[in-house]
Design a protein around this nucleic acid. Structure first.
Length: 473
DNA sequence: AGCACA
């Protein structure tokens, strides 16, 4: 407690590994800091563009003596330290380390990752999202999807500045109630930056939108009249047929690999793609055929059957909403057999002509094959929850939303959020070499085989010892 | 030209 408070500036400073640099050009980048400082020692951290004018920086040396040598050098040098011709003033920082709490999601970019908490999918339409975020600038693209963290949207702006404005205004706020269905009473927005810079939207749909291209086709599956999932008499969703089957694997005592599934499902026709993932602790797989009829046959034949003897790895099949999977060509959890030599490919390849994928990884390069939209994501579901002021819609007043586009599109997208596939996978604890033992065939009791179906599906030899062939369901 | 709020 001093009577006059802290002095504004300290003229005698205790040395620190961290140096405070002032009067930098605001354009100064980390590389320039490093160029300036590295003759004096090893730089372990930097922080530039600090302060209201973004003209200050911090540099942390590995060793205190290195910092001292730099300060001493310029204290007696006739040539001042300079960056871009500007004299830079160097002093010891009053802290002893640079704290960089920037998580990847805090690194600004032009694409926001928005997690909408407390809502069901469908409660917040893409048009509402568009409306809300258009208050800050032209929204180029939106892609929505479901993940463990909840309902999420990627929102692409022109630049990081616009995205930041939107984030700063909307993060931790709520979408105004009047834009939401009545039963929704909370709608928290958690916003971070995505690492993506350009989303690849393939269709206009209720899940994805490209406002830069109003001529983008509406998801063709919508034309077939598949609109909202209809409810059957039992109240369960009545599924539309699809060329892609969703297989849930029950009682998974043995590993179910891509190869195993391929063998099993190939009995009915060409398998184009497979993706294995986990959902709610259960292993599931998507299996893509070229057309619905094959999928229908496979579904009928395999439903309720077990891959292995003894009731292990029982299959439950339904039709997926997807029509074309967007999967890694070759990984332990997915395979794209439509790619000539998938084993040589590491990067994901977009759909064949006429085999549309709704949207896919915009990021080329080998880093992530079939990358997902999780990158900037990892949206901290563990953020402490705190009360959130509703977002004030009046902030939009006087500002016309940018880029209106037809606000509704019929039908639904079958966009494959590859993230659901690629990030949801977790390793299975089993590595059984047991071959699959599924006996495709419609009538389980009779063991009657369907025409053209091999009598038994054994990719790698006979049944495991002690495991008699099991046809049960 | 004077200490970081992401």
């Amino acid at each position: 407690m001093s009577t006059s408070g802290q002095p504004q500036f300290r003229y005698t400073q205790t040395p620190s590994k961290v140096l405070h640099l002032r009067n930098l050009p605001w354009e100064c980048i980390e590389e320039e800091l490093i160029e300036l400082c590295k003759p004096f020692g090893k730089i372990v951290n930097t922080k530039c563009n600090v302060g209201a004018n973004r003209n200050q920086a911090f540099v942390e040396f590995a060793d205190l003596n290195q910092a001292i040598s730099m300060v001493s050098y310029y204290a007696s040098s006739s040539e001042p330290a300079q960056v871009r011709g500007k004299t830079v003033y160097i002093q010891y920082s009053n802290r002893h380390e640079i704290v960089n709490n920037k998580s990847p999601g805090d690194v600004p970019g032009n694409v926001l990752l928005v997690t909408i908490e407390g809502v069901e999918v469908g409660d917040v339409s893409i048009d509402v999202i568009h409306l809300v975020f258009s208050a800050f600038g032209f929204v180029h693209k939106i892609a929505t999807f479901e993940k463990a963290a909840g309902f999420q949207a990627l929102i692409q702006f022109s630049d990081a500045e616009t995205a930041s404005a939107a984030r700063n205004a909307l993060n931790e706020r709520s979408i105004p109630r009047y834009l939401l269905p009545e039963h929704v009473n909370s709608c928290h927005l958690r916003i971070s930056y995505s690492a993506h810079t350009d989303l690849n939207i393939k269709f206009q749909s209720h899940r994805s939108r490209d406002y830069t291209n109003p001529y983008l086709p509406v998801n063709p599956t919508a034309i077939e009249g598949v609109v909202q999932p209809a409810l059957g008499p039992d109240g369960k969703r009545k599924e539309a047929e699809s060329n892609v089957l969703l297989a849930s694997i029950e009682n998974m005592q043995y590993a179910v690999t891509v190869d195993v599934l391929h063998t099993v499902f190939s009995a009915f026709g060409t398998v184009q793609k497979i993706a294995i993932f986990e959902k709610n602790g259960q292993t599931q797989a998507l299996v893509q055929y070229p057309d619905v009829s094959i999928a229908a046959v496979a579904r009928e034949a395999l439903e309720g059957h077990c891959i292995y003897d003894g009731g292990y790895c029982k299959l439950h099949l339904s039709y997926s909403r997807h029509t074309d999977l967007n999967v890694k060509a070759y990984s332990d959890k997915s395979r794209d057999y439509t790619i000539p030599d998938a084993s040589l490919l590491t990067s994901q390849v977009s759909g064949l002509p006429g085999a549309p994928a709704a949207w896919q990884n915009p990021r080329p390069g080998p880093m992530y094959a079939g990358n997902d939209f999780n990158t900037g994501g990892s949206v901290p579901a563990q953020y402490p929850s705190r009360p959130m002021a509703p977002w004030d819609a009046s902030m939009q007043a006087g500002r016309a939303p940018f880029g209106s586009v037809p606000s509704t599109y019929p039908g639904q997208t079958f966009a494959v959020a590859t993230s659901q596939i690629h990030s949801a996978v977790s390793s299975m604890g089993f590595s059984s070499g047991f071959p699959p033992n599924v006996r495709p065939g419609g009538a389980s009791s009779s063991g009657q085989l369907q025409p053209g179906i091999p009598p038994n599906v054994r990719p790698s030899g006979g049944p495991p010892p002690g495991h008699p062939t099991y046809y049960g369901q």
